[in-house]
Structure formats: C-alpha cells, structure tokens
Design a protein around this nucleic acid. Structure first.
Lengths: 254, 254
DNA sequence: TTCCTGTAATATGTCGGAGTAATTCGGAGA
DNA sequence: TCTCCGAATTACTCCGACATATTACAGGAA
C-alpha cells in the first residue's frame, strides 16, 4: 500500500506513504499524531508519570517534523493528558487531571477495548443527568421541540435501530430533549457522553439482534414531556437508560 | 517587512515587554495567546461564524511568530471553539460545538463579566449532579473518605470561608465526597464546574459579608454520608447547592 | 547533612519558505 | 440566462534549522 499516493511531497516514498495512510481523509497531520498518542495514553500504553521520550526523538520516530509533533502535544496538553516542561520532558498526567468528558478523549477511550469500569461510570453519570434533563424538558418544551421529537420518533419507527438512519434518529430524539432544557451546559455534556456511548452500540448490535423493541419506551418519554409531567418524564427516561445499560453490559460480558 | 528585527528575536524592547507582561509567570507564550483569544471569543468579541483575520496578519498584530499563534489556535481547536481550513481561514464555531465543560473554557468564560444565563445553567447542572454524588458517596464511602471529609470540615471551621485557606478546605471537602463516589467521570465533571463556580465566590465575598454560616449545612451532609443514608445525603447536598445559588444570584444582581 | 551554584539537557520560541487544498471567479456550453 | 467546470488565488499546513529560556541534576562548600 505504498503507491496509492502519487503526489507526495514531504517524506520519502516509503515513509511518506506510511504516515499518510495512518491518517484519515480530512484529518490534519497533527490531528493524526494526537489521535495516535491519545489512544496510546487512554489504552494504558503510557502510564501516568511516564515521560514521552523527548521531542526530537519522537518526531524522528514518527517521521514527522517537530512542529507537527509539538502541535499534537499542544492538543493533548489542552485536554489535560500531558504536561511538558523544559528539561523534565513531556509527562503523562495523573488520571484525575484528564478531561474525561472531552469528546476527543472519549473517542480515544473507546478506540480500543474500552475499560469496563469507565463505561460503568459513564452510564452512571448518564443515569443521573438524562432523567433530570427529561424533567426540565417537560417543564420548558414548546411546540417546536415537541415537533422535532415527534419527527425523530417517527423516523426511528421507520428505520429500526439496526440501520444507521435509525440510530441517527435516536440521536435526534435525545438531542431534541436536550435542546428543550434550554441549558447549554447540559447539552454539551450529554451530547458528548451520548456520542461515546452510542459508539458502544456497535458492540451491542454485534452481540445479538435487538434485544427488545425500544420504541414503546421512547414513546413513554415523549408522552410525559408532551404532557408537561416532569416526574413521569424523569422516570420514563430512567427506564430508558437502565435498559441501555443492561444491553451494553450483557453485550460486553461475552 | 522582515527587517525590523535587527538583533533580538522576539519583539523590540517595548513590544517584547508588553507580551511578557501579558502572560502570567509560569505560562507559555502560546498559552497566553490562547487565553487572549479564548476570552475574546467567550466574551462575544468574536461571534460564531466570524473569521479570524489570517494567520500572518494576526501573528504580526500580536507581535509573535506564526508558530506561536498556530499552537494557540490548536488549543482553541482542541476545545471546539474554532475550526481552520485552508483558504477559508479560521472561523469561530457555533456555540453548540464548544466544550463548555472544559476547565480552561470555563475559566475564560468567567474571566470577564460572566453571562448570567450561563451561570444559571451551571448551577442547574450542579444541582442535578452534586446531590446524586452525595447519594453515591453515602453508599460507597469508607473510613479513609470519612476521615478526609472530617479533616476538611475541621479546617473550614478553623479558618472561615473568608480566607483562602478556608475556601481550600471547602474544595477539599467536596473533592473528598467526589472521590468517595468511585466515579472518575463524575469527579472531573464536578471538579471543573466547582472550580469555575468557586471563582464566582470572589464576587460573592465582595458583595457582602458571609450571608450565613455555612458550617451546619456542611455538617448535615457529612453526617448523612457517615450514616450511610443516601436519601438524606442527597437532600442535604441539595440544600447546600441551593444556598450557594441564592448567594451568587443576589450578589450578581447588584 | 544541607544548601547553594554551575552546567548540561531539553523544551520553548522564532523564522522563512515550499507545498497543498479549497474557495472563487471567469469562461464555455446548453 | 443558467449551469458546470477548471484555473488562479489564497490561506492554512508542514518543514527544518537556529536561538533562547528554563530547570533537573550533580558536585562542592558550609
């Protein structure tokens, strides 16, 4: 797979092709490096306290310039994964300093085999936040919000969760609820976690066919929000999260 | 315009001093630039969709090298504030793409006059998460956790919240609770928000003397957690958050 | 032992240029 | 007139070398 890149300017033939193949289509080089290092750290390949073997050494090893490597390190630093000081080198920070809720960090965490404990933590957080979000949505939603939810629900019914379109509709439904809370902080939080957790849905689908028809549960949430009943909305959403947890848990045990 | 740099590499005397004065002691240059741009964006000085006037132009305006500017932009990109593409320039992303829970973004948001609505959103989130955290802590805490809480409580009593040491003890108390939940995601989330909200405590203190002795309320939380009573712990923590909200709200209205 | 000081190692900041990719604008065809 | 296509423009992207600043570490003095 060395010659699918006719116009290479930077590295030599072999190396240039290798680094190009490593990164996806639209991604920049430093983004690819950040992804590489990020997944390595999240997967435990580098332990907290470990030091990344020098700026020049790493740049040479990866066959990229120092600038690209440094920009990648800036990204990791911005997400609290590493810290670099002169003479001391670039060290991996303790896990408590990591921005675990950052979308990229979440993606890196789920790039390899996700840590079971971490998945449980995320579901626990979801079980706390999402019902509360549903409660607020029941209090604050307007007609437009309800229309969005209804449309998403209809789309979910048409395609099932087995298709990509169906899963997109599921995301739309939850996003509509989040929007109805009129709380931006809540929105970004749950959107991040939701995206990460939906990634595990791939596991779920792989494990077995749909374990249960999720539509009625979604309808229950919608009805409660439409009726403006905060307690019922929270409860129905709690059921939804619990079901998702059960499914992923049983899928991951295999 | 490459010749105005005779012998010294960074700006001339005045400009170099200016950029040095702008950044704090330990902070790197690109960190200072990121802070500058970040606060500008968070304060609404740049609206979503606006484009930052070119790499070279900006670097010249700030009297820094293009590399430094680029690294700063990488940081902002990592936090979802901007996106830069060839030919198109670096554009500010819509607010929904921002990582509002990132500690740095939170700090930038509170650097100037914080947006009232955003503060309310954060308190709402806190009111959702912290009681739930207290509930989990009541179920999972061990002796060591309780000892940490007790020590922090004692320190709070000694110094009051009017002193920096007292506020540090307050943070320690909440952190001890968070640690007792055994949930990393919960920990980083609440730690970020808590730090940001504590920043508003500065306003609170400025507004008036301690509005009420907060120690008894903290003790109530501790007692419930020590007794292993999840419901009481959640309720007591809810009271704590509500009080904090009231205080900041009344302080910000002035 | 403790403290200080000098030195070497390493990250930080700078610079200018070559390369690439996307926007834009003009022209050709329908 | 409208649509489509390609070529120039332009801004980001990446590079590599140089200069600087910071700091860990070692070795010597008190």
């Amino acid at each position: 797979m060395a010659k699918e890149n006719p116009s290479l300017n930077r590295g030599e033939a072999e190396k240039g092709a290798a680094s190009k193949a490593a990164r996806g289509p639209g991604r920049r080089l430093h983004g690819a490096i950040a992804h590489k290092l990020g997944t390595a750290i999240l997967s435990g390949q580098y332990q907290p306290g470990d030091t990344l073997s020098g700026e020049v050494a790493f740049a040479e090893e990866l066959e990229v310039s120092r600038s690209a490597y440094r920009e990648a390190v800036q990204v990791l630093t911005a997400k609290g994964l590493v810290e670099s000081r002169p003479k001391a080198g670039t060290r991996v920070l303790p896990r408590t300093r990591w921005n675990l809720l950052d979308p990229d960090v979440l993606a890196w965490a789920f790039a390899g085999e996700p840590d079971i404990q971490f998945v449980r933590d995320l579901f626990e957080l979801r079980a706390i936040v999402e019902p509360a979000a549903a409660r607020l949505a029941a209090l604050r939603r307007d007609k437009d919000d309800l229309k969005l939810m209804k449309d998403a629900l209809a789309a979910m019914r048409r395609h099932t969760l087995a298709t990509e379109a169906g899963r997109a509709a599921d995301r739309d439904f939850h996003n509509a609820i989040l929007n109805a809370t009129r709380n931006d902080a809540l929105l970004t939080l749950t959107a991040s976690i939701g995206a990460a957790v939906n990634w595990t849905t791939q596991f779920k689908q792989r494990a077995r066919a749909l374990p249960r028809n999720p539509i009625p549960d979604h309808v229950r949430v919608y009805d409660a929000i439409a009726a403006g009943d905060p307690v019922a909305a929270a409860e129905a959403m709690g059921v939804l999260v619990d079901l998702a947890l059960e499914d992923t848990a049983s899928a991951m045990q295999r």
